[in-house]
């Protein structure tokens, strides 16, 4: 294992985050504050409690997941796409590193950035609502697993994309709708029965539901199923990346 290389890729990727620290922090803080002003205060004050939890508080896990998912994908996809785009990928391909070491470096950094972002969002949320976490260990576990899983997914998009349009298309047209329709801002019990069943096909539901359970002990699906789905998603991503690495898909000629 080339630990020196893993470390340098990780630090190199994190370096980009620190270079744009103001932007990295300001953006989630402002958007979270706006969501709380609009949904938590303006609209939320007119919505009844959901299973005993005020609406402002109820949306915290979903709001966190919304940012974590989009940022994990964005960070990881951009991280591997940019060297491909500029041509500096030659150095990684010719270095004595295995694809898995490259993966750990890039995905590790992307997941770390998302974790920092989630912490900032939760800290911002605590300024608006009285935030109590029922199961801190599980909250952290769900968060870390989600950061890793979606960073892996982002890495796949970054490998697949051969232009900026493709880099944006999946997060924009698939991930964002899935997050909004995955119970981030509502309980699926509020939906008609048919749509409740349709929503069960949305993988994001399981992430949000498990994460929300760790805060308030309420969930749309059981925690066990949520965990199983996250591990399943993780396994699929690792499998796809393994295939991409083995065949050199979009990396090697």
């Amino acid at each position: 294992m080339n630990f020196v290389a893993i470390r340098i890729i990780y630090l190199h990727e994190m370096g980009r985050f620190w270079q744009t620290l103001g932007q990295s922090i300001a953006s989630p803080v402002i958007s979270t504050a706006l969501y709380f002003v609009v949904f938590g205060s303006a609209i939320g004050s007119r919505i009844a409690n959901i299973e005993g939890v005020s609406y402002g508080l109820f949306i915290v896990p979903g709001l966190t997941m919304l940012s974590v998912l989009t940022q994990s994908i964005s960070n990881a996809s951009f991280g591997i796409f940019f060297p491909k785009f500029t041509g500096t990928i030659y150095e990684i391909l010719s270095a004595p590193v295995s694809f898995y070491e490259v993966l750990i470096g890039f995905v590790g950094a992307a997941a770390t950035k998302s974790l920092i972002l989630a912490t900032i969002i939760l800290a911002t949320a605590s300024l608006f609502v009285d935030l109590n976490i029922a199961h801190p260990f599980w909250m952290l576990s769900f968060l870390v697993l989600t950061c890793i899983a979606f960073s892996l997914f982002g890495f796949i998009i970054g490998l697949w994309a051969d232009n900026f349009e493709k880099l944006q298309i999946i997060p924009l047209l698939i991930i964002t709708p899935l997050v909004f329709l995955g119970g981030s801002f509502y309980s699926i019990s509020m939906l008609p029965e048919l749509w409740q069943k349709v929503t069960l096909f949305n993988p994001v539901l399981y992430l949000v539901s498990g994460f929300r359970w760790s805060f308030f002990e309420i969930s749309d699906v059981s925690v066990g199923i949520s965990l199983t789905m996250i591990f399943l998603f993780l396994s699929i991503c690792i499998g796809v990346i393994g295939w991409m690495f083995k065949t050199g898909y979009r990396l090697k000629q």
């Binding site: 020196v4 290389a5 340098i8 890729i9 190199h12 500029t86 500096t88 270095a95 004595p96 590193v97």
Partner: peptide
């Protein structure tokens, strides 16, 4: 081609290469 990260410093990019090769 002159394939280099535009925003990196000379020192930083050379140190990155050394680490990438496990040194």
């Amino acid at each position: 081609e002159l394939t280099l990260g535009a925003f990196e410093t000379v020192w930083g990019t050379v140190r990155f290469s050394r680490g990438l090769f496990g040194s």
